[in-house]
């Protein structure tokens, strides 16, 4: 089975998932991002790499935060950006996803940044573009269902590398609702590809997918055990609708067992960093003392996120199918 993300030369043409990408491509993205981190600190924040290109933000599911970061990244590369909030337009009128894509292709898009509630939707789009012979259009997955959020995964890797230099000796724990988390899946694939020897998944059984260990992680139900000796702690957001119901009895009981408090964080290594993809639920998955504490690198993640998205878009624009 051909990996739809790569062309015949093994170059990245779509970013759909961190799974199935070789370490060299992941590293190349991180290295490229490093060159953009400097730019974002400059007075003039623009580079002309995507001048004349049109980036279409196709958000079939609302997300102002993610959309904004992609928009900033594209604009800093001098691209034209169109934001299409499709939840309220064409598909609501019964137009199929692929009809929408055909129409946008006719408007000379160069890149689609896609957020969709269904796992796999960006694959469908990439495959459709291939069938239509549109080798010039690239797809970036900005989050599909529970499946993947590769730019978030990559910015997490950038953040880890920034603070820990390399991946080869790390123990990384991912805590919380892994079942519903596309961030967790993208992190796990990127971490294992980059050579992290120990990735731990911590959560109650109701929030962990079946056969999770097959993805190369160690599963812990007791957070105190799971955090011991960790270099990196990645906390996941617990969606409101999961807090009070069949999956968990209450936000309070969840916090007691899986919320990150200073006491629990003390079980990790003293120089451990704490990450969160945001937006945070303070007092549900993370204590404010930790979120605002010296070990938290959550705002660094946001800053690096722009550079990583610039890197992804500029690399894709340089590769043709």
């Amino acid at each position: 089975m051909l990996n739809p993300q790569l062309n015949e030369n093994g170059e990245l043409i779509h970013l759909l998932s961190t799974e199935g990408l070789p370490r060299s491509i992941l590293t190349h993205i991180l290295d490229t991002a490093a060159t953009f981190v400097g730019i974002t600190d400059r007075e003039v924040k623009k580079v002309p790499l995507l001048r004349g290109k049109s980036v279409f933000n196709l958000f079939f599911e609302n997300s102002t935060r993610t959309r904004t970061t992609f928009e900033i990244a594209a604009k800093r590369l001098s691209a034209d950006v169109l934001n299409l909030d499709i939840t309220r337009s064409s598909t609501a009128k019964g137009e199929t996803l692929l009809d929408t894509i055909d129409n946008l292709c006719a408007m000379h898009a160069d890149m689609f940044v896609v957020r969709h509630a269904s796992s796999g939707a960006p694959y469908l789009i990439a495959e459709h573009l291939k069938k239509r012979g549109r080798k010039d259009i690239h797809v970036v997955n900005a989050g599909d269902g529970r499946h993947a959020h590769p730019t978030q995964g990559l910015l997490d890797m950038y953040t880890i590398r920034h603070f820990k230099q390399n991946f080869e000796n790390l123990t990384v724990a991912i805590v919380g609702d892994i079942l519903h988390s596309r961030v967790a899946r993208s992190d796990i694939h990127a971490l294992t590809t980059l050579g992290v020897p120990e990735v731990r998944a911590i959560g109650p059984q109701t929030l962990l997918p079946a056969d999770l260990a097959r993805m190369g992680v160690q599963v812990y139900h007791d957070m105190n055990d799971g955090l011991k000796g960790c270099d990196v702690v990645i906390m996941l957001r617990l969606q409101n609708e999961r807090m009070n119901g069949a999956l968990l009895p209450s936000a309070g009981e969840y916090f007691k067992h899986y919320g990150l408090t200073p006491e629990k964080l003390a079980l990790a290594k003293p120089d451990a960093i704490v990450m969160h993809p945001g937006p945070m639920n303070r007092g549900v998955e993370i204590d404010s003392d930790v979120a605002d504490g010296p070990q938290a690198v959550i705002l660094n993640q946001v800053t690096f996120g722009i550079a990583v998205r610039m890197a992804v878009m500029s690399i894709l624009a340089g590769n043709s199918q």
Binding site: R146, D211, R214
Partner: peptide
């Protein structure tokens, strides 16, 4: 509800 659903984020 197994390995592939876990990996692809499909409801099992």
């Amino acid at each position: 509800d197994g390995e592939v659903a876990a990996r692809l984020g499909l409801t099992g």
